[in-house]
Design a protein around this nucleic acid. Structure first.
Lengths: 105, 105
DNA sequence: TTGACATGCAACCATAAGGTTGCATATTAG
DNA sequence: CTAATATGCAACCTTATGGTTGCATGTCAA
């Protein structure tokens, strides 16, 4: 779970996920195209995404295809974001109240 | 948006959000209780959470109260996680197919 | 008004993170 | 078989990150 949050923390990695979202199953070479980063940098990012299980690699000969795994993101939502969503309205209410009262007790 | 992902990347900060979720409006001192970290470390974490607008501070005399702001998390979900949720089933399908086929083209 | 309390600010430190370059390895095409 | 292609691995560098300690500031209570 921590690995997933860590993996999502970097904009380059989110960009890679975005690319895979729009075109699943790309090779490393394809994912590198038009990025101002070396192939090795991309490799490192993909390694973190794989460690977080957000991306699953599949070898086809000398090519490495990358597939999106939506499960970890879904879990993040279920076990983490959802919890805050459930409290969202009451938290917003707290905030509104306290900001209206403008710092008095 | 990047600030929000960065803020969520650290487990201590997620823990602080958790604490605020279960008891909103705590002071710095309260938030520090039973953490194996100095007050200054907590202050730094809270500063990042504030920069990401996940936590809103309200001063009451010499005390600083901390309130949860659910909006950024909601936006993360709306603009980011939701997008992947929408593709979730097809991505799972891709993954299943490719893993079944076990690496042939 | 003075001391205790709640917090802020700044310097400093160790390690992690993101990136590069150079070379090695494995697969495919001619 | 040999070239070119696709990728991996390792060393290295710079900056960010998470943490500490020490001291300063502002507020409340006796």
């Amino acid at each position: 779970m921590d690995l997933v949050f860590k993996a999502l923390a970097d904009p380059s990695r989110r960009q890679l996920l975005d690319r895979l979202c729009s075109h699943n199953g790309q090779t490393l070479g394809e994912l590198c195209r038009d990025l101002d980063m070396t192939r090795q940098a991309v490799t490192k990012h993909l390694a973190l995404l794989e460690a977080a299980n957000l991306v699953v690699p599949v070898w086809r000969g000398r090519e490495k295809l990358h597939y999106l795994n939506p499960v970890p993101l879904h879990e993040i939502y279920e076990r983490w974001i959802g919890k805050f969503e459930r409290q969202r309205l009451s938290a917003l209410h707290d905030l509104k109240k306290i900001l209206e009262g403008d710092n008095r007790e």
